[in-house]
Design a protein around this nucleic acid. Structure first.
Lengths: 153, 153, 153, 153
DNA sequence: TTTT
DNA sequence: TTTT
């Protein structure tokens, strides 16, 4: 009935832009490293790596202007999406459908967001997708162990 | 850096209460059916099934007072948790760590939330966990197909 | 840049439905009692009384289906609106512009939400507005003018 | 029952740090300019000016590290606070009680957040408060009294 | 001025 | 696999 998510984090890689085969609707996927609000037992600050998907005009804006390391705020809803593995299994993956993505910093390298050479950024995106199969999204689940190390703060 | 989630939905089954092996910290898991804000191409309203985990006193309150079908509001943060499958693979599963869980309706069957016979409710929870291994949490991902049917509204 | 609010609370009175003078856009105002997550020094649970405004179709749905005491979830954005007092001062008042309003309970009195006799419910709302000048909004406001310029998007 | 706010915006002036008279609890007030997600009829992007209050350690961190123009994300709850005007009227003002405040940029002027000369930054804050009576909060407020009874939990 |  |  209500499903609201707000995240602030950094892109773990360049965004990927694709189009739906039928209607050619733009869809952009990226992963966000969102730091946890506490440190673990070793005093390290961990992060959650959360998949974001945006659609249409916003998808293209993200693909054109964002890159690995950029800081963004995303608000949207949390969704579980099903898909088939190569061997025919059904898997479910969590992702945040980004209704809005705000850019919170600007790249040091100023050839981004210049409005002129997006193709370069586009190349970067496609290049990066060579070694970034969706399998690295890495959500899955068989066994579920309750552990003291999972206790927060 | 910021990670805020608010969900309203109904429990898809009775909550499961466990304790961490070391410190005996209470942890409660349940799954929430959260209806999407639109209908699909067949005019049906789909839902996302989202795993919730709560800790300590709140875990026990949920286990004692909630049951399948109950309506709750959860606010917390979205987390990706890793675990090992039986064959040694690492899987990651999304879950919302519930900082607060508000009860938004009361069961028709008034023997819940009576403050007297929680043990009965406790039995129900334990009984339900017999045939509900954690493997049913089951979100995972290898392949990622872009599809027109995934385009929202 | 980002402005997200989620509230759950009860209507402190029946909603008020009006229309903008120029374009006749429906606008519905009500006030929500939102309990604080803690008790005060006297052990009492206080509430914040927060003004909500919704527009268009949602405004009419709220006016038709809601009444004093009803439990709702509102998500929207926090806005400061200016208005003139009778003696010409400018005042600013906070309100939440409700993008969505979910109904979380149903009235005991089942003649609401029956889908058949909304006109009756409508009468009730209008009747209640007779003695409910906007001054009762309790934020030091005097007159609450509905204006076409306030209609969002 | 539930009251969650997330804002991203820029400080409209330096934060003000004070201490409650009884227990000496630190409290920091500032105002955030939060841009609206649309432009008005004249094509201008307006902003809402929203009062933020934080307590204890976070209050001091804000006072030490933040200044006018800085970009922050605030999450907290929306609260209506009463106060007395000089002529004895009761006024109510909206403010967001910031549970967490994340700093989203760093000042160009690098003598902030250096960890060494916070006293200078402190002077700046006090100096700025000379000409920043609370009346500029723009909600018709006259005097803003810090009170021990307002300290949360 | 306020809801359950 | 799923809630109303």
């Amino acid at each position: 009935m209500l499903n609201q998510v707000v995240l602030i984090g950094r892109l773990t890689r360049d965004p990927e832009l694709r189009y739906t085969p039928g209607n050619g609707v733009a869809v952009c996927n990226f992963s966000l490293a969102v730091e946890r609000p506490f440190t673990n037992r070793q005093g390290e600050r961990e992060a959650d790596f959360i998949n974001i998907v945006t659609w249409r005009k916003q998808a293209e804006q993200c693909a054109n202007h964002l890159g690995k390391g950029r800081l963004v705020a995303v608000n949207g809803r949390l969704q579980m999406r099903s898909y088939e593995t190569q061997d025919g299994q059904t898997r479910r993956v969590a992702e945040v459908v980004g209704e809005s993505v705000r850019f919170l910093d600007w790249p040091k390298n100023s050839n981004k967001n210049s409005g002129s050479n997006y193709s370069e950024s586009g190349f970067g995106n496609q290049g990066s997708s060579d070694n970034s199969g969706s399998d690295q999204f890495g959500f899955g689940g068989e066994e579920y162990q309750v552990d003291d190390d999972d206790v927060p703060f």
